[in-house]
Design a binder for these strands. Structure first.
Length: 818
DNA sequence: GTGGTTCATATTTTT
DNA sequence: TATGAACCAC
C-alpha cells in the first residue's frame, strides 16, 4: 500500500520533466493521417471523454493512437493505463495496433484486456476479502447449471417446472446489475417460485465453499471489494491514471460501477462506443450508460466520429434511413466523401430455399466477376442472419452446389463436450478438491459408477467435510462400495494419484515473496515442487489414455467421433503454449475462442450479432420478414425497446457492407417443420427508396413482385397480392416445387400481433364447427364459445381453451396461399 | 446402471 | 423438423 504513496511522491516531479522531454524529443508520426475528430479524440488526454464512433469511422485507430500518444508523451507508463474490451480478440488487436503506432512492441501493458481477464487478476490479489482463496476456479456455464440443479433439487422443487437454466439466467441478470444476494429487491427475489433470492444466496455460499466463481462473480466480487475496502480501491484509483473503454454501449451496470469507481480519482476516462450499435440489451447491456455519460462525468468532452471509411454512400444512406426511426439516440449521421457504388439491392423470394439458392448463385456470380468487374474472393462475402437456424438453408444449398463456406459461432472449441471432459480430468489432477470436475468425469467414460455409487460418495464426503475425491477414498477404505463400481472407482482413484505424482516434480521449499506491485503479468503462485520429469503434454496424453477417455471415443461409432478425437489432439497441442496444466486451466477459462486459420477461401455465414465489428465487401442480409427480423419474441418480450434493438441490429447488418449489400426476404418459410408465411420486414419499409434497387426474382416476369414492402402501412392484403399476379407466382419455380410437395404445402397464416384487421375478423366470426388454425396447436374445430375464449378440439394437440384472437379461420382457401 | 423410448421445445452470446 | 432431456423397462 505504501508503495503507492512512495511511488506518487517519487514520480510527481520526475513525471513532469519526463513528459516535457518526451513531448519535445519524440516525434508523433502516428498523428498523421488522422482526421480532425480522430485527432481531437487522441489529443484530449485529460479529463473524461466520450468518443461516439459510428460504424467504420476509425474508432480502433483513434483508440490505439490515443494509447500510443499517452505512452509517447510520457503521461503514463504502460502499466498505468487501464484499457478494457469485451472480447479477447479486441484486446489482442488493440495490443498489436498500439505496438504498430509506436513502432515497437510494448513491454507489458498488463491492464489491457477484457473486463473479465482484468477482474480475474484483481480478484486473485484480493480474493480473501470476499472469502475466497486466490487459486479459486472459474466455473463454466455447464458447471454453473449443474450446481444450481443440485440446489433446486435439494430444495425439493420440481426441477422440471423450475429449470436450472432459468435460475441461471435470473442470477446472471442480478449479477449484471451488481446485486449481491442481500441487494436483490424483494420483488425480484420472489421470482422463481418465491425461491429466487434464497437460491441465489445458497448458490453463492456453495461457490465460496467450492472456492469457485462464475463469470458474473468476477465483476461482482471486484465491485464488492472496491465498495467495502476504501484502501484497496484507493490504490487502484491512483494507479490507473488513464482509463479507456471500448464498446461502452455494451457495458452492464456492474461494469459501469466498476469503471466509475476506478475513474473517480483521476477522471481520465475515455469511453468509446456507438449507441446505434447497442445490440446486447438482452444480456444486461445498458444503453443508458452511454446516454448518461455526460451526467456521470461533468465536463466531459464529447467527440463524434462520423466520417465513414468503409461503405458506399448508398449503403450508408440505407443504414441511416433505418436507424432514424429509433428514438432517444445521441444523434450521429455517417457520411463519406465517396461517390461510387451501387444501391442496396432488395429482392423477395417465394420461400427460404429459393432465397438460399439465389444467394448461392449470386455468390458464385460475384466470385466469377460481374459486368466486367473482377471476381471477388469468397473470403470477401458474408451472409448475416438473425437467428442461427436460418443458417441451415444456406448450408444445405452450399453443400449441394459445392460452395465452400464457414460458419462462425456455434459451440466454441472449449465448449465442446470432449474438451470439457478432458479439462475436467486435468482439473481434478491439478486441484483434487474440484468437486464439479470430479462429478463430471467420475462416470465418463461409463465405468459403472452410477447414481447409487455417486450418492454414496457424496454422502461420505459431506459427512466428513471433505472433497468428493477424498470422500471416494474414504468410501473405499470403509469398504462401502463393492463389486464392479468399487473396482472401477479404485482404478480411477489410483489413476488420479499417479497422475498427480507425475504432474509435479520433487517437493522443494520456497518462501513466497509477498509482492505488492501491480505491474506483474499475474500474481505468482508459490511453487512448492520442482519441475516434473514429464512434460505436461505427455502427462495430458497419459491421463486421457489411462482414464479410458481416448478409447471411449475410438470405440464410438457415431460420425462425430473422429472429429472429437481430432479436437482432443488439438487440445494437447494447445497446451504447448503454457508452462503447465495449471497455467493452462487458469487461462483457458477466459479464452473460449480458438479460431483456426484456414487456407481455403470460403463464404462466411454468421449471425448479425457475431458480425458486429466486422466488415465485408459483399454482404447478404436474408430473412428480412416481420416476426423473424424483427424477431417476434423480442417485440413480445421487450416491446418498443425490443423493436429498437432489432432495428439497431439491422443497422449493424447494413453497415457491415463495404461495396454490395443485398437484403432479401421470403414469403414462405419452414419453421419447426411447419410452413409459415410472413410479410416483408417493417425495416424494409424504412429503407429510403433512393438508396434501394429492387431486383426481380428468378422465375417471375413483370418485375413488381420484388418491390413489395416499399409502400408502408399496407394492412390486410398481402404485399404479394398488391404487386404480383397469381400467374406470376404459379409460374415461379418455387411454386412448382411446392406443388410437388403437396404434403407440406404452405398455409397462409395471419400473424397475431400486427394485423388488427385479421384479429377483428377472427374474434367476430367464429361459430361452432369452424375449422381454425392456431400457431402452436395447429388445426382444429371450434367446439364451443365462451366470450372471447374458444373451446377447440385440435387435431394434434387435443382439446384446448384458447383466446379467439390467437386463432385464425382455416377454411379450404387457407390451404393455398392467397 | 444402461439403453432405448417418448416428450417437450424451439433468438441473439461473450467471458 | 430435430434436438436434448427425462423416463421407463431391462
Amino acid at each position: 500500500m505504501s508503495s503507492f504513496d512512495e511511488y506518487d511522491a517519487f514520480e510527481a516531479s520526475e513525471r513532469q520533466s519526463l513528459a516535457a522531454r518526451a513531448m519535445a524529443a519524440r516525434p508523433t508520426p502516428y498523428l498523421e493521417g488522422l482526421n480532425t475528430e480522430q485527432r481531437a479524440a487522441v489529443e484530449a488526454l485529460e479529463g473524461p471523454v466520450l468518443m461516439l464512433a459510428g460504424a467504420g469511422t476509425g474508432k480502433t485507430k483513434a483508440l490505439t493512437t490515443r494509447i500510443a500518444h499517452l505512452l509517447n508523451t510520457g503521461k503514463a507508463r504502460p502499466n498505468e493505463i487501464l484499457a478494457v474490451t469485451f472480447t479477447n480478440k479486441a484486446a489482442r488487436e488493440m495490443k498489436e495496433r498500439v505496438a504498430v503506432h509506436l513502432g515497437q512492441t510494448i513491454e507489458g501493458m498488463p491492464w489491457m484486456g477484457t473486463f473479465h481477464a482484468i477482474c480475474v487478476k484483481l480478484l486473485r490479489r484480493h480474493a480473501e476479502l470476499v472469502g475466497l482463496k486466490s487459486n479459486f476456479t472459474i466455473l463454466d456455464t455447464d458447471d454453473q447449471i449443474r450446481l444450481m440443479k443440485q440446489l433446486i433439487v435439494a430444495d425439493n422443487m420440481d426441477e422440471k417446472r423450475w429449470p436450472a437454466r432459468q435460475l441461471s439466467g435470473l442470477i446472471d441478470g442480478w449479477k449484471n446489475r451488481a446485486w449481491t444476494p442481500a441487494q436483490v429487491p424483494a420483488a425480484d427475489a420472489s421470482a422463481f417460485n418465491h425461491k429466487g433470492g434464497e437460491l441465489y444466496a445458497a448458490y453463492q455460499k456453495r461457490l465460496v465453499e467450492l472456492n469457485a466463481v462464475d463469470f458474473g462473480d468476477l465483476l461482482l466480487h471486484v465491485v464488492t471489494i472496491f465498495q467495502q475496502n476504501q484502501d484497496v480501491l484507493a490504490q487502484y484509483q491512483r494507479w490507473f491514471r488513464y482509463i479507456l473503454v471500448d464498446e461502452y454501449q455494451d457495458t452492464n451496470v456492474a461494469q459501469y460501477l466498476w469503471l466509475r469507481l476506478l475513474a473517480a480519482q483521476h477522471k481520465n476516462i475515455c469511453c468509446v462506443g456507438d449507441d446505434d450499435q447497442s445490440i446486447y440489451g438482452w444480456r444486461g447491456a445498458e444503453v443508458g450508460n452511454i446516454l448518461r455519460f455526460e451526467k456521470d462525468f461533468p465536463g466531459a468532452k464529447v467527440i463524434r466520429l462520423e466520417q465513414n471509411y468503409r461503405s458506399t454512400p448508398h449503403i450508408l444512406g440505407a443504414a441511416s434511413g433505418v436507424i432514424a426511426a429509433n428514438t432517444g439516440r445521441l444523434g450521429k449521421e455517417l457520411w463519406t466523401d465517396r461517390t461510387d457504388g451501387e444501391k442496396v439491392r432488395l429482392i423477395g423470394h417465394w420461400d427460404g430455399e429459393e432465397e438460399a439458392r439465389w444467394v448461392g448463385e449470386e455468390v458464385e456470380a460475384q466470385q466469377r466477376g460481374t459486368r466486367g468487374a473482377a471476381g471477388r474472393s469468397l473470403d470477401d462475402m458474408a451472409i448475416l442472419v438473425r437467428a442461427s437456424h436460418q443458417m441451415r438453408a444456406f448450408e444445405d444449398r452450399f453443400l449441394t452446389i459445392g460452395l465452400p463456406y464457414r460458419v462462425i459461432g456455434g459451440p466454441r472449441f472449449y465448449e465442446r463436450m470432449e474438451i470439457r471432459d478432458a479439462m475436467a480430468y486435468f482439473r481434478v489432477v491439478v486441484s483434487p478438491e474440484d468437486d464439479l470436475a470430479f462429478e463430471r468425469i467420475v462416470n465418463t467414460p461409463k465405468r459403472g459408477i452410477g447414481n447409487v455409487a455417486q450418492q454414496k460418495i457424496q454422502t461420505m464426503a459431506r459427512e466428513n467435510g471433505v472433497s468428493l475425491l477424498e470422500g471416494a477414498h474414504l468410501l473405499l477404505e470403509a469398504k462401502g462400495l463393492g463389486g464392479k463400481a468399487g473396482n472401477e472407482l479404485r482404478k480411477l482413484l489410483d489413476g488420479f494419484g499417479r497422475w498427480r505424482e507425475l504432474s509435479r516434480g520433487p517437493k522443494i521449499t520456497v518462501t513466497l515473496d509477498d509482492t505488492d506491485v501491480l505491474d506483474d503479468e499475474q500474481a505468482p503462485l508459490a511453487p512448492q515442487y520442482g519441475p516434473p520429469a514429464l512434460s505436461h503434454m505427455e502427462l495430458a496424453e497419459i491421463i486421457l489414455d489411462e482414464s479410458g477417455y481416448t478409447t471411449h471415443w475410438q470405440n464410438d461409432k457415431t460420425p462425430e467421433a473422429p472429429g472429437r478425437l481430432e479436437n482432443l489432439k488439438e487440445l494437447v497441442k494447445a497446451l504447448e503454449q503454457f508452462e503447465n496444466l495449471q497455467g493452462f486451466l487458469e487461462h483457458v477459462s477466459l479464452i473460449m475462442d480458438r479460431e483456426q486459420d484456414e487456407a481455403e477461401e470460403k463464404v462466411t455465414i454468421m449471425t448479425l450479432h457475431a458480425a458486429k465489428g466486422l466488415e465485408y465487401p459483399v454482404v447478404f442480409l436474408p430473412g428480412w420478414e416481420d416476426g423473424l427480423f424483427p424477431s417476434q419474441r423480442s417485440m413480445d418480450e421487450s416491446g418498443v425497446s425490443g423493436l429498437e434493438e432489432e432495428r439497431r441490429l439491422a443497422y449493424v447488418g447494413i453497415t457491415r457492407a463495404e461495396e454490395v449489400c443485398t437484403i432479401s426476404f421470403a414469403a414462405n418459410r419452414r419453421l419447426y417443420g411447419q410452413w409459415q408465411s410472413a410479410l416483408p420486414s417493417r425495416f424494409i419499409d424504412e429503407l429510403p427508396e433512393e438508396h434501394v434497387e429492387v431486383l426481380t426474382p428468378p422465375g417471375l416476369y413483370g418485375g413488381g413482385y420484388g418491390a413489395v414492402g416499399m409502400n408502408t402501412g399496407n394492412m390486410g392484403a398481402s404485399p404479394m397480392e398488391q404487386r404480383a399476379t397469381k400467374a406470376d407466382v404459379y409460374n415461379s419455380p418455387g411454386w412448382q416445387r411446392m406443388q410437388a410437395r403437396s404434403s407440406q404445402r404452405p398455409v397462409s397464416q395471419p400473424r397475431e400481433s400486427r394485423n388488427s384487421v385479421i384479429d377483428l375478423q377472427a374474434v367476430s366470426s367464429f361459430t361452432q364447427g369452424d375449422r381454425v388454425f392456431h400457431q402452436k396447436f395447429g388445426y382444429g374445430y371450434v367446439m364451443g364459445i365462451e366470450g372471447d375464449k374458444l373451446d377447440i378440439e385440435f387435431e394434434k394437440a387435443g382439446a384446448k381453451k384458447v383466446v379467439a384472437r390467437f386463432v385464425s379461420a382455416a377454411d379450404r382457401a387457407d390451404d393455398v396461399p392467397f
